[in-house]
Simulated scan of single mutants.
Amino acid sequence: MALAFGIGGGSGPVIGGSLAERGHWRWLFYFNLFICGLVAALLAVFLCLKKPNTPLHEKLKQIDWIGNLIIVASTTSIVIALSWAGIQFPWSSAKVLVPLILGILGLFGFLAYEAFVSEFPIVPISLLASRTALSGYAQNYFNGIVLVCISYWISVYFQACKDAGPTAAGVDSFGLSYTISPASVVASVIIQRISRYRQPMWFGWILIIVGCALLGTLDENSSRSMCYGFQALVGVGMGTIYVASYFPVLAPIPVYQSTAALAFFTFVRNFASIWGITIGGTVLQNQLVKRLPSTFLTQFPGGTHTQIAFEVIPSIRNLPQPLKDQVRHAFAGSLQVLWNVLAGIAGLGLVASLLMKHHPLHTSVDSNWGRVDVDVKEKDEVAA
């Protein structure tokens, strides 16, 4: 999964940048229709899963309708708040604070409902009963923030400070995206061989902290090779955590709970991505307003500073001196603060990792689930 994510994450910015650079930005969305259609066809043809022999009305009764409603409403409220914050409305605006607070309270209400009311909970509270599992979910969350934030904002450095176009900035990000995949594969093999997950995860967090701190030393005149190397350090660390954080979540629970645990794990990772982009935008916004020349900012009346950042980038290469160097310096300094903030978030991940205990890894799977063809093949082998 991490290997596929790395390949997609590396090629996506280049494809998207190429389309945007040529003015075909609508195809950033249309292109996904073909991808999703192809994947749906592959799933329909090749993914033959076991199906429980339960009547449809019984299946419908086992859906946690109220729990689904609470979690969808809560996360939607938070997404709306984070999408508006600093872009359409200030962070202090009631239009941001009200949905954000209601969404967070809704998440706590969701956990309470799952624990004490729901007969068929989406997230059984037993998944969160051990400190090792809690540590795994927390590390997954912090790693998701760092991963998405760097992936999203690293191209801004190359475009604003190195005069790179959207496509070239995607290529410049290969140091990050194409180290995550091999690192995740190596980490999974090591964990399988040594049956230990804590030590690789500590190693991964240290690499992320060091890599982000080194990114925080880059200025507008730093060499590209330095940035590539620092990206690689972060990528190796994130690739390690990306795959290793499954184990503290799954090891403490019985295998029959793996489905619910992985569903919640994926939710936490996707939820973190919203915060990653928002944190990056907020830091960049606050720093740019302090660092960009005031006379230059007056050219963008009424706009938020996050919007200003993306409006300015295409024009930087054509700005007169010394204004061009001043703007490049402002972007580099703003991003330095962001990378240091991410080093701090990675530090929280390292602290959370200290809560883990060692649990033996499972050596079996839940035979009630899986692909139909696997069982058929196994039965044929046994019969032979």
Score class of each variant (00 low, 15 high):
Ser173Leu: 14
Phe120Met: 00
Ala330Phe: 03
Ser367Met: 14
Pro314Trp: 11
Gly106Ile: 00
Pro90Leu: 08
Val14Asp: 09
Ser353Gly: 08
Val236Gln: 02
Ser151Met: 14
Ile316His: 05
Thr259Asn: 14
Thr76Lys: 11
Glu381Lys: 08
Ala343Met: 02
Lys50Trp: 05
Ser195Val: 12
Ile7Val: 15
Val365Lys: 15
Met201Pro: 00
Ile313Tyr: 11
Ser77His: 14
Leu128His: 03
Asp380Leu: 08
Gly303Phe: 06
Leu292Lys: 05
Arg196Lys: 14
Leu207Ile: 02
Leu28Asp: 00
Ile190Asn: 09
Met238Arg: 01
Trp65Ala: 11
Val98Asn: 10
Met226Asp: 08
Ile154Met: 08
Phe271Gly: 01
Ile71Thr: 02
Lys377Cys: 06
Ala244Val: 00
Ala41Cys: 07
Phe247Trp: 04
Ile63Gln: 02
Pro90His: 11
Ser135Asn: 04
Gly175Asn: 05
Tyr152Gly: 13
Gln199Asn: 10
Ala133Tyr: 03
Leu82Pro: 00
Ala232Asn: 08
Thr217Met: 15
Ile253Arg: 12
Gly370Trp: 00
Leu33Trp: 04
Pro360Gln: 13
Gly303Arg: 10
Pro293Gln: 07
Val98Met: 12
Ile101Gly: 04
Tyr242Pro: 04
Asp163Trp: 01
Val234Cys: 07
Cys161Tyr: 05
Leu28Glu: 00
Asn32Thr: 03
Val189Ile: 15
Lys290Phe: 10
Gln257Phe: 06
Leu38Met: 13
Leu105Ala: 13
Gly109Asn: 11
Asn140Pro: 02
Leu284Thr: 02
Gly280Thr: 06
Gly237Glu: 10
Pro52Ala: 14
Gln231Ala: 01
Phe267Tyr: 14
Ala309Gln: 14
Thr304Trp: 03
Leu49Val: 09
Asp64Asn: 08
Phe174Met: 14
Leu355Met: 12
Ile194Met: 13
Leu38Asn: 07
Gly17Thr: 07
Asp64Pro: 04
Thr76Gln: 15
Trp275Tyr: 12
Cys149Glu: 03
Arg371His: 09
Val351Asp: 08
Ile277Asp: 03
Ile253Val: 15
Ala232Val: 05
Gly303Asn: 05
Leu233Pro: 06
Val372Pro: 01
Gln285Met: 13
Leu43Thr: 00
His329Cys: 05
Leu56Gly: 07
Ile191Asp: 04
Gln336Val: 02
Leu250Ser: 06
Ser245Val: 03
Gly86Tyr: 12
Tyr141Ser: 11
Ala85Lys: 07
Thr217Tyr: 08
Gly165Cys: 03
Cys36Arg: 03
Phe247His: 11
Trp91Ser: 03
Val376Tyr: 15
Val351Leu: 13
Ala260Ser: 13
Arg196Met: 10
Thr132Trp: 01
Met226Pro: 00
Phe46Gln: 07
Tyr242Asn: 12
Gln159Ser: 02
Leu297Asn: 08
Lys50Leu: 10
Pro99Cys: 07
Gly302Lys: 12
Ser151Phe: 07
Ile313Met: 15
Ala138Asp: 03
Gly136Met: 06
Asp64Gly: 05
Leu3Arg: 02
Asp373Gln: 09
Gln257Leu: 14
Ala169Arg: 08
Pro13Leu: 05
Gln321Pro: 07
Cys36Leu: 10
Pro360Cys: 03
